[in-house]
């Protein structure tokens, strides 16, 4: 097993075999979280920082638990309670944290490229936990892990991603990953959220959910990111729900064994009906559970084994 990257900045930089390595490693970590004593000594003595400039429930806790179950020390940083609120620059903030001898920094930032910028002056391993509308690689990896659990393959699976594709880092990372693994990705949403150029990422685009959902194996709904919206991207939430909301009726057009995914947080009754979100076909909580194992795998592959050569 070889994983030669120093950082995890995005799916784009990973090969299909890198992705498989991560997924296989995650497989072996899955069982640890089910133990009575959920801890192994693998990363004992390593220091990891959760550097979150945006709010997060799942990703931050998931990384924290992943680090702790591997016995690493992890501290949480949030911009509300830090010197960032006093006007400290990102570079100075990161250099100060790194001066305390960190081994890895997990970055969530509202601006695309912030983790890439940090990686230009930092010694630590940088893990992108979501940068603006760019990438969210660990989400795509845990989604892939979950799809593989359910469908055992990627090749020729029809995956429909519905919603605000333009502003979604989850959509981008999933598009890159699933295309690399041979799945057929169809993006669906109103035109303001779905620029025609997305076809160049190897996906199909469709403005009509009723048509696109036919024969789907996986339906991934995305949250309407009200905090990133500009006025008039679509007329109203009501119209959005009518045209793009995932309802029981629409879901029936997908394959019988189709599964429903959502990266969270959910706007119940907007992009997905509440009943569907809680239905048996919904694997939303499975995604969250798998997230810990996938992030353990990533921490292990980047930080584990002192003698391993790393390059990027």
């Amino acid at each position: 097993m070889s994983f030669k990257h120093k950082h995890l900045l995005g799916i784009q930089a990973l090969s299909a075999s890198d992705i498989l390595t991560i997924l296989e490693t995650a497989e072996s970590f899955l069982e640890i979280s089910a133990r009575e004593v959920k801890k192994v000594p693998t990363l004992r003595g390593k220091t990891i920082v959760n550097l979150f400039f945006e709010p997060s429930t799942r990703t931050r806790s998931s990384f924290e638990l992943a680090a702790k179950r591997l016995s690493a020390d992890i501290i949480n940083f949030s911009n509300q309670t830090s010197s960032v609120s006093k006007g400290e620059s990102l570079k100075d903030t990161v250099l100060s944290l790194e001066a305390m001898n960190t081994d890895a920094i997990i970055v969530r930032h509202s601006y695309a490229g912030a983790p890439h910028f940090i990686s230009t002056f930092c010694r630590s391993h940088i893990i992108n936990a979501g940068d603006g509308a760019h990438e969210h690689p660990t989400q795509a990896l845990l989604d892939a892990f979950t799809i593989k659990q359910e469908k055992a393959k990627f090749k020729n699976l029809k995956v429909v991603i519905v919603g605000d594709i333009l502003h979604s880092r989850v959509a981008r990372s999933n598009i890159f990953l699933l295309s690399k693994m041979g799945a057929k990705v169809v993006c669906v949403g109103p035109p303001a959220f779905l620029p025609i150029e997305f076809q160049q990422f190897g996906t199909q685009i469709d403005y009509n959910l009723d048509r696109a959902i036919e024969g789907a194996d996986v339906i991934m709904t995305l949250r309407i990111q009200l905090e990133r919206q500009q006025k008039n991207s679509f007329p109203s939430i009501r119209e959005y729900r009518n045209i793009y909301g995932l309802t029981e009726e629409r879901f029936r057009k997908a394959k019988k064994d189709a599964i429903i995914m959502h990266p969270g947080p959910i706007n119940r009754g907007v992009e997905i009906s509440s009943d569907l979100a809680d239905s048996l076909q919904s694997i939303i909580l499975k995604q969250v559970e798998n997230g810990v194992a996938v992030r353990m795998a990533i921490l292990y592959l980047l930080l584990g084994g002192k003698d391993r050569e790393t390059s990027d």
């Binding site: 695309a112 490229g113 940068d131 603006g132 509308a133 760019h134 990438e135 333009l166 880092r169 981008r172 620029p195 150029e197 997305f198 160049q200 990422f201 500009q230």
Partner: peptide, 18 residues
């Protein structure tokens, strides 16, 4: 152009920049 930081097109979508 509001809030835009680079040319709008394939690469702005790829890099996640407005």
């Amino acid at each position: 152009s509001r809030d835009g930081v680079m040319h709008e097109g394939y690469y702005s979508y790829l890099f996640g920049l407005k």
